[in-house]
């Protein structure tokens, strides 16, 4: 599996370089022109990658600082022992660590390595791309103080807590994670064997946090490149207009908008503005499904999930989120009509 990601990552990197190179040349004048689809592909790919990369960097920075400044005992002490309270706390943790769906993954992995309970960690993973001050503010800016904002926050928190609680039933939490992070859980020195433990003092500790963040950024970055490339490829092959053409009815409109959210792989900080274009031509429930499902599940985040969790864990997580969002959105379309 890692080989596939490595190949996709390399392809993406090659595309980045090629796009930059082509930008400096006027190939048409030289009698050589690539198909239009290639330019579409590279534009979409760059759009997704450039938008997401800073957020991944922020997430890995937060992860580095958590690794250095937050010990296992502190996590155990601060987080509720009760699974429900832990899941709710995890769902609201985004207000302390405001990270997008890319940044939350390395941070969650770090929390797991510090012994965070699965319910809390998964609730944090799913909720924090929406339940954080930046996304709340952008949704407010797009939709105002009204039902879309309230439903987005409420539904995201509810689904994150519910799915988190399901994973609390796993008798051996370590089995949810991939073997590599499990080894890392045993100690930071294994995670970063080439990094010497930090000497006492603030400066060396910050330096160590930054080194860890850098390592993690490059490690996760290739999966982000691979994810962005796949999303760009799918968007080039399956244009939005084809999806939107079939998007009517209380059920179908929800399915289409969920598919669109996966396909577009937009960061949750800006997706509210993107969704405004669909208001009026799509049902309110489907708009909400776009705003709730997209931050939890899209192509690039699923690829990043696969680096942290077992495939079965990712499958269960995505499936349950899909069902919850589908049910809630169809219910809203047929029974509430916001």
């Amino acid at each position: 599996m890692n080989k596939v990601f490595n190949i996709l990552g390399l392809l993406g990197l090659a595309l980045l370089l090629l796009a930059a190179f082509l930008g400096m040349q006027n190939w048409a004048v030289m009698g050589f022109a690539l198909p239009d689809q290639f330019y579409t592909l590279s534009t979409i790919f760059l759009g997704i990658f450039i938008e997401a990369a800073p957020f991944l960097l922020m997430g890995t920075l937060a992860s580095g600082f958590v690794e250095v400044f937050l010990d296992r005992d502190a996590i155990q002490r601060l987080m509720p022992k009760n699974a429900l309270l832990g899941a709710v706390a995890g769902g609201l943790l985004g207000f302390i660590f405001p990270v997008c769906e890319c940044g939350v993954i390395p941070l969650t992995r770090r929390f797991f390595s510090k012994g965070l309970a699965p319910a809390t960690g998964i609730a944090f993973l799913l909720a924090s791309p929406v339940i954080n001050p930046i996304v709340v503010a952008s949704t407010y800016a797009a939709y105002g103080w009204g039902p879309v904002l309230f439903w987005r926050i409420g539904l995201s928190l509810f689904i994150a807590v519910a799915v988190g609680l399901v994973f609390a039933l796993q008798a051996r939490p370590a089995q949810l994670l991939k073997p590599t992070p499990l080894i890392q859980i045993s100690g930071a020195s294994v995670d970063h064997p080439h990094i010497a433990p930090a000497a006492p003092g603030l400066g060396p500790r910050i330096q160590r946090a930054l080194v860890i963040a850098g390592d993690e950024f490059f490690e996760m970055g290739r999966y982000l490149i691979a994810g962005s490339l796949v999303a760009a490829l799918l968007q080039t092959v399956v244009p939005q207009t084809a999806l939107l053409a079939v998007g009517s009815g209380p059920l179908l409109s929800v399915l289409v908008m969920m598919a669109l959210a996966v396909l577009l792989s937009i960061c949750s900080t800006v997706d509210a503005f993107v969704s405004l274009a669909f208001v009026g031509s799509f049902t309110s429930g489907s708009i909400l499904s776009f705003l709730v499902f997209g931050p939890m599940v899209d192509i690039k985040s699923v690829m990043l999930y696969l680096q942290v969790f077992q495939r079965k864990t990712v499958l269960y997580m995505v499936w349950l989120v899909f069902l919850f969002v589908l049910l809630a959105s169809v219910f809203i379309n047929l029974n509430i009509g916001i």
Partner: peptide, 21 residues
Amino acid sequence: RLDIAVGALSLCLLAALGLVL
């Protein structure tokens, strides 16, 4: 337990979806 819980919850959610529709 996790597999059973996911299966049971999926059935409940699908049944609820069917009822809503």
